[in-house]
């Protein structure tokens, strides 16, 4: 598995995978729906899969001494590694912002503030993307557009829901919003729930993708 992940990194990753990590810096932009940061991770996964198709990566990889079911798992784990870095960078950017900027600048007139609860929401968004995109993609790896549109649309619906809740629901409006120093316990709980959701949804993506890919003809 480690060799497969190394192969993914050296031969399959699209340069945007690293560029989009820098989008965690959007957390410093005032009045911005920070949930959108996590959409870019899905976009880099899409670019990697397109590059993989153009490079004939799947037939090449499956002829190597690996089991066929490990091939999708390696790609999902590679994507998950980058997603975890994005979550971490977003969390760090939010903490830095809180430490450096005056409190009035922490107010977000769009979505949730850049805090650990946002990282939890990001975990759910990324997990949903993984659970939808990868199983659909590994059912027919030559068709990448449709799985991406379905997964991206689902993520945008959830982003919309998150932004709406931030203005309408007291939990999001008063407790999960604002800096990390306020309602820290609740925000950490939201982070934990988000990360658990991310792990569960990504594990589901691995399981379904591996099962479907075994029946694919390359």
């Amino acid at each position: 598995m480690l060799n497969l992940i190394k192969k993914e990194i050296s031969l399959c990753l699209h340069p945007t995978s690293f560029i989009f990590l820098a989008f965690a810096g959007l957390a410093f932009v005032p009045n911005y729906p920070y949930e959108v940061i996590f959409f870019f991770s899905g976009l880099s996964v899409y670019f990697c899969c397109v590059t993989s198709r153009e490079n004939g990566d799947l037939p090449f990889t499956c002829a190597l001494p690996v089991t066929k079911r490990d091939v999708p798992i390696a790609r999902i784990l590679t994507a998950a590694g980058l997603q975890c870095i994005l979550l971490l960078l977003t969390g760090i950017a939010g903490a830095l912002k809180e430490a450096v900027f005056p409190p009035e600048l922490l107010f977000n007139g769009a979505g949730l503030s850049a805090n650990v609860a946002l990282v939890g929401v990001g975990g759910i968004l990324l997990g949903v993307f993984n659970a939808i995109f990868f199983p659909l993609y590994y059912k027919k790896p030559e068709k990448i557009g449709i799985p991406f549109v379905i997964a991206a649309a689902s993520v945008f619906v959830l982003i919309g829901a998150s932004v709406t809740l931030r203005w309408t629901h007291p939990l999001f409006l008063n407790i999960l919003n604002g800096g990390n120093s306020e309602h820290t316990g609740a925000k950490l709980l939201a982070l934990a729930v988000g990360l658990c959701g991310y792990i569960a949804l990504t594990a589901l993506a691995c399981r379904l993708s591996a099962k479907r890919f075994e029946n694919v003809d390359l």
Partner: peptide
């Protein structure tokens, strides 16, 4: 491809 298990 069958021998290499590239197809099911």
């Amino acid at each position: 491809k069958g021998i290499l298990r590239l197809i099911s």
